[in-house]
Design a protein around this nucleic acid. Structure first.
Lengths: 248, 248
DNA sequence: CCCAATTTGTTCGTATGTATG
DNA sequence: GCATACATACGAACAAATTGG
């Protein structure tokens, strides 16, 4: 019972997260792990409420949230039905985070990396042709990564900043919106298992190659450098996942 | 008052859309047209309810929907605050539809077309290297477009099908999820103003060039053909928009 | 440090509407 | 046409958190 996560016992229990957020995530979990799948009808609002120990109102509001994300649909008289996974808002950061938390397939990760390779390459090309783009900042990131290899500073932060600069530097808000997805990816996948010195030493020159290519303004060179960077990142990450058997 | 859209007068009034949907869209409109902008706090739930003639419950559920889409944030004691436009789920189909309906800037459209050019190009390249991809279907679309030029059948439908095939044929669900956005774009922008014979006669061979390039398997050729296709589409569409002054 | 005001959070009871069979 | 099962909608009430005095 969700409610039990808020110990009403002691002096100051105070729920940090609202019941709403808990219920949303719990129902989302049902859908992701497959307790309910496409076409299934959820128990009615009353029953869901009872099962989770919350009122119907809370259930209704939670359902609205998941409807907004394309995971559920409510039909009068029928009830709340689960939509096909490819109706889910795949670009929604919360949906993505839930996937990472409750189980994501290898196929999904492969596709995510392919999408990332494509879009980051576009972004890098646009950066290369954007006169306002500041290459120096990008170089700073590489320097920070290099320092991190010597134990000075945070590799993770510098790496993320590098990719954020690319995606935001393109001057395209659609590309910029991929940043939160990337942050999710980094958070979920860049474990100490992946961030080993061997990988970092290999990827640093790949990053620098991208910077140099952008500085040169040669877009085919940019594309090649970017594709190499992301495909190696994919290797380093997914190999470890496969080894650890971390996913669904 | 939203409520007035449902004439309780006669015998059978029947609201086709729920109050919820109406209120969601109304508040979304407030944000898009700028009645409330970044950082603004909405009137409290009670007041919004009174203003729209609905109960607090309905307002709350509507707000949940907009929070789920990144447009609002709710803080206790403070109230409901409007988030910056670049927090809004830019890939959300409903948000996009509302933008088209209530005002979209030319900059936004430019960026959308650029994003589309990039992602559709990736998709086309992936189709070209996907052994399961059926080029014949793509050719069918072109034939259908050609027939439409002679008054046989629907150009719009064939054109859309063409692009849908590309985006789904790549075998990547992120790319496939761009289809609903494209449908929005087509619905909103491909008016009879744009779909004039001159434009259609020019774009048909561009489509065929993409098909041929994919059939040949030459990815650089695919890219070039695709970029040409989309950039011309952008010209044809935005020129008309500019002429008509249709946007925000 | 506590008090008071404001606003959302949450519950409950009830009535209505709508589609199904 | 009627009963049923469910979502839809309302209103009142109290709880909890945050802010400012």
């Amino acid at each position: 019972m969700i409610r039990d996560k808020f110990p009403d016992t002691g002096r100051f229990p105070r729920p940090v997260r609202s019941l709403h957020a808990e219920v949303v995530e719990e129902i989302a979990r049902w859908l992701i792990v497959g307790d309910f799948t496409e076409g299934d009808v959820l128990p009615n609002e009353q029953e869901v409420g009872q099962a989770l120990g919350v009122s119907r109102t809370v259930v209704r509001e939670a359902v609205r949230t998941l409807v907004a994300k394309g995971m559920l649909q409510v039909r009068r008289r029928t009830g709340t039905v689960v939509l096909s996974e490819d109706e889910w808002n795949i670009f929604d950061t919360e949906v993505l985070a839930w996937r990472f938390r409750y189980g994501v397939s290898n196929d999904f990760l492969e596709e995510l990396f392919k999408f990332r390779a494509g879009t980051e390459t576009i972004a890098a090309e646009l950066c290369a042709t954007n006169p306002d783009f500041d290459v120096a900042e990008l170089r700073d990131c590489c320097d920070a990564m290099e320092r991190a290899l010597d134990g000075q500073g945070d590799w993770f932060e510098a790496d993320l900043r590098f990719h954020r600069l690319l995606l935001t530097g393109a001057g395209n808000r659609f590309l910029a919106h991929i940043v939160p997805m990337l942050e999710n990816l980094f958070d979920a996948l860049l474990s100490p298992d992946v961030l080993i010195e061997e990988n970092m030493r290999r990827t640093l020159p790949r990053h620098r190659a991208v910077v140099d290519a952008i500085a040169s303004g040669n877009t085919t060179q940019v594309r090649e450098a970017m594709l190499l960077l992301v495909s190696e990142a994919r290797e380093d990450t997914l190999r470890r996942i496969g080894d650890a058997g971390g996913a669904e």
